[in-house]
């Protein structure tokens, strides 16, 4: 554990809590892609199956359980409790275009051809692209509420901090997880355009982010 990894995990947690609280307090999930949230729940579900097979640390177990619980709670709020506010007409990203290549790649490129390893690899690749339905939705509607952009900012920050964590671990421990690093870098690149808009429009304009 190093400071970048810890800060990354905290950013990830903050992002998820921001989204959950936003939906809970406003009793609305308008502008939120339910598809992205289902994909994230799938990411956690397939990655954390090792909760049943290996013990890493108390921190590891607690965080995994929290991420799983919060992601399912978010999906529940969107599709059950506040489904009347769900903007399904603008949440039209074709998820199968992500799932098919990701499933294919996870069978081709993995550390071991075992069910758990393939599912772990699947979760890593899927996480890299799971935000695309949300970004697609923002592009389609041309705007995002500021709280939604704060959520995306912390999610992107988490990815950037994980890269710093990998640089640190490579130098300090000789640790290098090629699958995680490559897809983590790809994932972070998706946020760069958003980061630019966030700084130039949301922070300076202090309001909704609208696209030109």
């Amino acid at each position: 554990m190093n400071i970048f990894r810890l800060a990354g995990d905290v950013s990830h947690l903050v992002a998820i809590i921001i989204l959950l609280l936003k939906i809970w307090r406003s009793k609305s999930c308008a502008g939120i892609s339910g598809k992205s949230q289902v994909l994230f729940a799938l990411v956690f579900s397939t990655r954390y199956l090792d909760l049943f097979t290996v013990f890493v640390s108390v921190y590891n177990v607690v965080m995994k359980v929290v991420f799983l619980a919060l992601s399912y709670a978010t999906v529940y709020l969107i599709y059950m409790r506040f489904r009347n506010s769900y903007d399904s007409e603008n949440d039209t990203f074709r998820v199968e275009f992500l799932l098919v290549p990701v499933i294919g790649l996870s069978f081709l490129e993995n550390y071991a051809f075992t069910p758990l390893e393939i599912l772990w690899t699947f979760s890593i690749f899927l996480e890299a692209v799971a935000i695309m339905p949300q970004l697609f939705m923002i592009t389609k509607t041309g705007e995002a509420e500021s709280i939604t952009t704060h959520y995306l900012f912390f999610l992107g920050l988490y990815r950037a901090l994980y890269i710093a964590n990998w640089v640190w671990r490579y130098h300090m421990e000789g640790f290098f997880d090629q699958i995680a690093v490559v897809s983590g870098v790809v994932q972070t690149i998706f946020y760069c355009d958003f980061f630019y808009l966030y700084v130039t429009r949301v922070l300076r304009g202090k309001g909704k982010m609208s696209l030109p």
Binding site: D9, N60, F67, E117
Partner: peptide, 10 residues
Amino acid sequence: AEGEALHDEL
């Protein structure tokens, strides 16, 4: 498990 990597990150 044998043949599987230990994934200690979240």
